[in-house]
Design a protein around this nucleic acid. Structure first.
Lengths: 235, 235
DNA sequence: GTCAAGAATGCTGTATACAAGAACCCTGTT
DNA sequence: AACAGGGTTCTTGTATACAGCATTCTTGAC
């Protein structure tokens, strides 16, 4: 039990931050929208102080841009920026895989296999939501398997930021099955201690290349056009 | 000319953040130190509001830990965390190199060569400070050469965070010359468009392995023991 | 003498008040 | 009619006031 009993949700600012993050990620707030402190304070039933705190946190994650004396503006990544982020994500995951091939514990490897089993069931049932959840679990476990806590945190941070754009990719026909096969290939490489194979498979698994670019583009457009698209994301 | 005339240093909170960052990075503030809002407000001649803003920004960069209802605490990376950060930095730089081998512009390549020339002069004069400055320039240019703005920002962010620990490494005898040779090897690979060579050299250039681990350990200890060590860092 | 419970103090989180800069509008001029 | 200049209004940045939780000190009991 940690020393500091993390009293959750006693800070209003954290709740505001999370709410705004959802509103941005789901597209309820569009790119370039100005976040008005007073009207949002009214909406959330609090003063400007928690809002300003939330703005700063969001600015740190890159979701809003803070311009001095001008205000906070929603900052959606462009298609090009998203491709850039996936390029970095691919490399971070590849590094996780390379390290995990040497460092993964039997317990984590078992947990990773469990997600693959769960994914199989989801594919059989064509249950996108369940596949999505287990897919995320696989990746977060993989970050941990690298045995580098800093890398784990950075990878999880970027993963979280790319979340809304990964989801719709999975809806593409056959993508789930292919994704699952790649997960299996990663775990086989980890089992064999083949660092380079794990890295290579993961890089290609995450990278936006070939047909996946078009998938991403479609996902991007849909996210932008459907303000309510994110409601299912909370699962 | 950008639309928003970035009026610099009009926000007191930014100045406070920078000052605190210096105090933490230079070791004036030790690990675990609690940052008292009121006494620091007195010291900086402002109210608690800008300080709290600065605390949040520092927490976002990982320099302080914010515990709800408890306060802000200085958070120095442990030796192990530093090794972890260098592990990630090595991979990010390797990625920059791999991408730059295909994307670098002639102009940037020329600028990169210029830093090598400047480094040569610094090595000949045994001028650590100048070598340090040009070395940093080389790496920042390399991040840009990758042609991925997101990667550039992330790499620069991590580079900045590792700054205080990189400096003393260079004081090790012979390290400057070896570092310079590695820079040359990187640029040769970029010139030849050899992505894998560039990535490989950069990974080894940055990674903490073999004797460099001991250098880092020494650097770590010295940073911690000498509160005034960072005065020369501002150059 | 030690430990526990309660009160008192101090600090954080939030609300509000105030000052200064930015945006907007209106008017006057060319 | 278009543009420049000034003034007004609105918003941000900062200071201060207030409420609630955490720590600590004190006091009493075992």
């Amino acid at each position: 039990m940690p020393l500091y009993t993390c009293s959750m949700e006693t800070r209003r600012a954290d709740g505001v931050r999370e709410a705004l993050e959802q509103m941005i990620v789901t597209g309820e707030l569009s790119d370039g929208d100005r976040l008005d402190e007073m009207s949002l304070a009214d909406r959330f039933g609090c003063s400007r102080t928690p809002l300003r705190e939330a703005f700063q946190a969001l600015a740190a994650s890159g979701l809003v841009q803070l311009i001095p004396r001008r205000g906070a503006f929603v900052r959606h990544p462009s298609l090009g920026e998203m491709v850039e982020m996936f390029e970095v994500m691919a490399e971070l995951e590849a590094l996780c895989g390379r390290l995990a091939a040497r460092r993964v514990t039997p317990e984590l490897l078992a947990e990773l296999w469990a997600t693959v089993t769960a994914c199989e069931a989801a594919v059989a049932a064509q249950d996108h939501d369940r596949y999505y959840a287990e897919n995320e679990r696989f990746h977060l476990l993989l970050y941990r398997a690298g045995g580098n806590a800093f890398l784990e945190a950075e990878a999880a941070r970027l993963h979280r930021r790319l979340k809304p754009f990964r989801r719709l990719q999975l809806r593409v026909r056959g993508r789930m099955a292919q994704s699952l096969a790649e997960h299996r290939a990663v775990l086989a490489a980890l089992r064999d201690g083949d660092a380079e194979a794990a890295a290579s498979v993961l890089r290609d698994h995450v990278a936006v290349q070939g047909g996946k670019f078009n998938d991403l583009m479609a996902s991007y457009r849909q996210e932008r056009l459907r303000p309510d698209a994110g409601l299912a994301l909370r699962a």
